[in-house]
Design a protein around this nucleic acid. Sequence first.
DNA 1: ATTCAGCTCACATCATTATGCGATACTTTC
DNA 2: GAAAGTATCGCATAATGATGTGAGCTGAAT
Lengths: 217, 217
Amino acid sequence: METPTRLVIYEDNPDLRAGLSELLAHAPGLALVGAFGNCVQAADDVRRLAPDVVLMDIDMPGCSGIEGLRAVKATAPTTNVLMLTVFEDNDRVFESICAGADGYLLKKTPPARLLEAIGEVRAGGAPMTPAVARQVLRLFPKPAPVRAAPTESLAHLSAREQEVLNLLVKGYSYKMIAADRGISIDTVRSHIKKIYEKLHVRSMTEAVSKAMREGLA
Amino acid sequence: METPTRLVIYEDNPDLRAGLSELLAHAPGLALVGAFGNCVQAADDVRRLAPDVVLMDIDMPGCSGIEGLRAVKATAPTTNVLMLTVFEDNDRVFESICAGADGYLLKKTPPARLLEAIGEVRAGGAPMTPAVARQVLRLFPKPAPVRAAPTESLAHLSAREQEVLNLLVKGYSYKMIAADRGISIDTVRSHIKKIYEKLHVRSMTEAVSKAMREGLA
DNA sequence: ATTCAGCTCACATCATTATGCGATACTTTC
DNA sequence: GAAAGTATCGCATAATGATGTGAGCTGAAT
């Protein structure tokens, strides 16, 4: 490790930025070459400073970290970008991943782990907080194979209810479900009523939409 | 955490199985309730032993760990399954994820980290070796373009029709769509009729299901 | 032994959807 | 300039869905 890893930080909170800079500037094998409070000039910064790794806060006012991520990746695709966030927000995890983030850490990550993560990403890994990793797995499109581990809300459904919901997703009507399962249409009604309660929806369409979004693809 | 975490191990190598058992049997907060050399009876084992967490070796002769994973998830979807492997093989990572694995660790993972991972998965996380995480991320951006280009059938819809279909997917009723777009409910009917013709469906649910499958996620 | 959750069924009533038929008007295309 | 496609609206009827209330049966959990 002769040449140190060139590092750039984006973090809007001045205190936190100072803290991170302090920590990382003196770490062996690292060279902190820039620390910014916003990422409006990210493309420029990256071109000029040629960092190996970028730490990008995702929750920044004005220009969000995701835009910053896109700018960095558009300018220098090989730069490794680690996203930092306080939230485990589903949407942003997804967006970040689609935009090519190389890792995703919560801000509460201890400093030692942060240094470790920088090493890992340089070694071709993708450091992730386990909680985030779980979300990533959930987001994962589940094509042909057997689906398992339905999402939370879907998990409260009884076996029969999940069965009925599956048929709804296939476009079955009450009548068809009753015929298919050999039960009365009133029983189907009963199941569907419970499904609605549990999923907090009020129509078949909502139920189908929710079910598919939550993994019953 | 009064009740210990019930644990089951699948690992074909007797030495390694013994080692793991030794390690985990005496760990605080853990109760090792089973250790098997193959997973042909996985469904049965899980039903009988009701484990909270399963450690599944992915490289087993006869019945692969992925089949074991599927069996476990099919029998008890809430059981957390951690996959263990020596290889960072892309296909198997992918298959495991699709089958609902809750974590993915390399066998060279130090024992301490393994214990940590069990805790993490119980806490709703998805522990992953960084190298595996990277692969998972790589698998991601690819499905995205698929979604970006709506399938043929969806493309035949006029702008207005796609608009209406989008609202259907959000769970809107005819009435709500009419209000939202400032058009009469009969116009909504008219649009929806055409949508049905073009998509070859006969109900809102079918339309929603088809729309979501074909990219309107 | 009792409670509780899930599965089953019934009846009633109102709201919403599905479908057919028809009409006017505007654009784009041939 | 006619034809084709889109967007708009109206009316009517039959089918389906949404919701409430109530109730018997089972098996698992306490």
